[in-house]
Each structure stands twice: as C-alpha cells, then as structure tokens.
Design a binder for these strands. Sequence first.
DNA 1: TTGTATGCGTTATCAG
DNA 2: CTGATAACGCATACAA
Lengths: 326, 326
Amino acid sequence: MTIYDIARKAGVAGSTVSRVLNGQPGISDGTRKRILAIAEAEGFALSENARSLKLKSSMLIGILVSDIRNQHYTEGAYVMVEEFQRKGYCSIIMNAGNSGAAKIDAVRMLSSRRVDGAVFIGSSFSTEEVAKAVSTYMPDTPIVMENGSLPLDNVYTVAAADSAGLRSAVEYLAGSGCRSLAYINANDTPSNRLKRKGVEDAVSKTGLSCIYMETTDSFEGGRKATLRLLEQARPDAVVYSMDILAAGGVRAILDSGLAIPDDISVFGVDNSIYSAISNPSISSVDTSLSAMSAECVRILESAMAGIIPEKRKELPFSLVIRESTR
Amino acid sequence: MTIYDIARKAGVAGSTVSRVLNGQPGISDGTRKRILAIAEAEGFALSENARSLKLKSSMLIGILVSDIRNQHYTEGAYVMVEEFQRKGYCSIIMNAGNSGAAKIDAVRMLSSRRVDGAVFIGSSFSTEEVAKAVSTYMPDTPIVMENGSLPLDNVYTVAAADSAGLRSAVEYLAGSGCRSLAYINANDTPSNRLKRKGVEDAVSKTGLSCIYMETTDSFEGGRKATLRLLEQARPDAVVYSMDILAAGGVRAILDSGLAIPDDISVFGVDNSIYSAISNPSISSVDTSLSAMSAECVRILESAMAGIIPEKRKELPFSLVIRESTR
DNA sequence: TTGTATGCGTTATCAG
DNA sequence: CTGATAACGCATACAA
C-alpha cells in the first residue's frame, strides 16, 4: 500500500495525498476529508523509509549500551526512549558488547541507519577505537556520552560527579567514626577509576587505612569479594562502587556473623532499587541517573537542532543515608 | 556519501560498488579491492533506508513494552535485542504506554517503520483495541506476544505457566505446614489474573484460608500492602505476584517484628535478582524469563522466514526454594 | 566482468 | 487548489 493506491481510490494525484497526510495547507476540505477517510479505512501509514530517504532525516536515535546486564544503564536507556518518543523520535537500542570490534560494528550500524543522533551509555565507550569509529563513520552526527567522553567536535558529555561522590561518602564514614576502610571496585572502567580516585583522595585526606579490591559487577561478585576480604581483614567499613556489589557484600557480611552497621558500615553507589531492597538498606551515593538521562536527551536535541550545547555537563551527587551506616 | 561517490572515485559504475559492498560474486579481484579500500577510507556504509525501500525488508524488529518500570519486562526486551542483533536485525524499542490510544499509536509507528516483525511484551496488549490496531495496520507482519495473545492469524503467543506455577507454590506452602494464606496481587493484568486463579485453585484444593489483596507493582506497593495486611490478620504465609512486591513484603514483615519463615513464609514470582538479593532470600516461582524471550525470538524468526510456527507455546515453570520458606 | 536503466515510496518544485 | 515530475540511495534485470 502506497500513497498512489490511496490516490487512485480518491481520484487524485499522489502529491495531493502526500500533502494531506503531512497536514499541509492548501487542500480543499472535501479532498482532505475524502483522502483521510480512505487512508484511515485502509490502515495506511506513510513509509518512514521512503520519507527518510527523501528528507535525509530518519527521526531515529541510536542508543548504545555497553553492557546489558547493568540495570543502571538499561534503566537510563528506557528513560531516554520514552523521552525521545515523546518528541517523535524512534529509538534503536543496540548492545555494543565489550570487545572493541563489536563497538566499532555498532557505530557502523548506527551510521548505516542514518540516525539523527546517538547516545552512548557507559564509560567503556571512552576509547581510541570508538573515537576513530565515530570520526570515520559518524563525523557529523551529534552524539552524547553518558559518563564518557571523546575528543571530537560532535561528541558531548554528561557525567556523574563520581570522584566527588565517593570522596564525600568516605568522609561521611570517617565522620561516623570508621578508621579502617575497604573499597571494592567493579570492572575496570573510566567511571570506576574516577570513583576509586575519589576514595583515594578522601583516604589520604582523612588518614584512614584502606584495602582496595576488584571484582565483577554482580551480586555474586560483591559477595565473593567481600568473603575474600573478611578472610584477610576486618575493616570498619566497606565501600562498593555499585549498589549491586554492596548488596552482595551485605549478604557476605551477615553470613560471616558480623553486624551492620555495628561491626561494619556499608556504602554503595547509584541509589538504585538494590540499595533500598537490601536488608539492612544500604546508604548510597546518588548520582542522579534519571537527571543524567534527561540531560542527555536535552543536549542531544539541542545539538540536532543546530544549537550548540555545552560540551560537558557534570551533574551533582547527593548522599542517601540508610541503615547500613552509623 | 553514496555508492555513486565511491563509484566515481574508483572509476566504476554504481552497480559495481553495490555488488562489491554486498559481497556478490562476479567482480574482478582488482576492482573489488579498490572499491573496498575506498569505502573503508571514506567510512562509507550503505544506507539502510534506501536498501529497505528497494528490498522491501527493513531488517528492523519492533519491540513494544507496556510498562517501562517493570524490570522483568525490560530485562526480557534486552535479551531479545541481543539475540536479534546477532542475526543482523536492529531492534526499535517503544514504550507503549498504558492508555489504549498510546498502544494504537505505537502499532502505527511500527507499521510506518515497516518492521519485519514485532514482539509485544506484557499481557496488557491482550485487548480488543490492540487487536483492531494490528489487524488494520499490520495485518501481515508476524508478531509474537510474550504473556499475551490476540485472535489473529499473524500473532503468536509465548506464555508463562502462571496458573500452574502459583498453584504449585501454594501447594508447597501447604506441604510445609502453612494453613492460613494471603495473596497480594499487583496491578490487574491478564497475567496477574492467571496467577490469582492458580492460587484460588490450590487454596480450594488444599483447604487453606486465603486473604486476597491488590497493590501496585513496586517495592513500596508490596511493603504497604503487607503492613495493611498485618493490621487485620496474621497469616502463616504470604504469596506475592512479583518478586519486587515480595521484597517489600519481607521488609514490612521484619519491621513488624515477625520472623521469616518462622512466623510467616514468603513466596514471590519471577526468580529475579530481587528474590536473590533480599534478606532473607525469597523463594520464587521461576517463570523462566530468559527462556521465554529466547522462544519469542525463535518463533518470530521462524514466522518471518515463512515457516509457520506453533500458534502458542507455554513454558514450564519451576520453584526455587530459598530462605523465606520452611 | 562491468555498465545502463528502472523502480522502490516519498517530498518538493514547478506548472496549471 | 491540484497534478506532473524529478530526486533521494540503492539493487537488479538486462545489455554489452
């Protein structure tokens, strides 16, 4: 079914149907009504493919997520999908995988779909490879990176105040009387490195002792790392780079017969549902995910409209104190 | 940048470039290499818009999610995105909203994008309105409904064994010595109605008593409903239609000074991360989300390939027993 | 092995 | 107010 089928049934030319379906003026009320009625009856919708081809605008937004299993990210993606949808854009979501090649492929796909703009979610896109892929495949398409950055003219950044947030959390713990700390970091990403830096800064400033450990970003990762930790030490407080790790940590600490926060305080990051669900509930650094997502949408829209937005926007954090700290 | 730009630089015709870029045979090795090199250098990718127009296939899959906040669904959506991507499809995800009109709009959008197939996630798509929208806008596009169904030739169903799963959970509780039950249901959806029916069946069969309550599908919803429940009764066990509710319930029960499972057993549904994170961890009906999602992909692919798949597939459930039950 | 010509479903320009 | 026509970027039948 095409506009010509509609045109034939209405006894008009294709261009007239096009005008009517696009709500353009200069069509007699009679023809308009007749065409609309036929289109409605036939369940006809203009082909966005042909439209995109002609108009050189796909009304498509590409959203790249580095890791599907990070609920924090997918949640952010959905906020964006909804927001873009409200403005008439369709979002195509792709899982960029963790290999460099997969990321390059993903960028290429967005390019071949001729997306009007894109959002890359997660700091793992901040690599040379991605920068090169973007500059060769999408040098002129506005791109916003959530928690990442690329030194390119068409790429904008919306970032969480990771360092400052963690610094503040450690200072809070120090203020509540903790003296020996442990910091358990998830996968090595730029974002997590910033968090660690915040911890290190605060540790050296407050004079606390601190054990650093790495693990994978899952409940189990947090649980096992914490068990490992408790075999070798008995810190006052444990800080995790993500709530989901902290939830696993809480489980490990309780299973070890220790009390929270009496024996050990626990701090997480993200202020996600995990920190609220956990029992005891977990104090967390709120990096305002939804605000970040909204900001990504706003900046991308601005750039797509040709209004150059700020190159980098850092969002404030706040501490949400719950039962896991004194 | 088009294939003609590449053609000019390579001193060949557009059709030759098209052939090379599509990996078709019958091109001399020299020309092929030359064209490939130029395309690579220019970062050129064929326009999927033009391709779709010509080939009458968009390689696009539409995924409709009824409610973004249901993590269970979004997680399933991501499994599909990844799976489809592996097969060369792009997924466009849309939030269908809860009003009928929004759902119709969403179907129309998928139609205008000329998606090759679609998945509707969630039982709230099982309405007359959606059926009509599908039959007028996408009468010939294969559609798979996860946990829903529509009486149309092009619509297939993949469903969880909701009733059977809940029946089994209640029987398990009865077997562990529980005599008085409460069932807390989230929003009224076909799927939740099936769950309730399973509970009712088992209750009448086992001779338990049961209080039924409704709430909203969130941690807070579960918590508040449970507090309300405990004001008026003291059941042996509480069954929740979703893990997230059960997590809220656990919190409410513990806050009321009762012990789990000594005073009250708790059962959830979904075997999600929530049931694992909760403390105590929650026994849950596993409706095998990932298996369902994989099945949706399989069925849709089959239908798109012209091989008529089974009209309805119901997946088995299993009980995952954790600390919240005796 | 390669080139020419045509059509896919739209929109926009220009005529009428 | 409406119609004819070209062009968008590609794939393909046919010709060379």
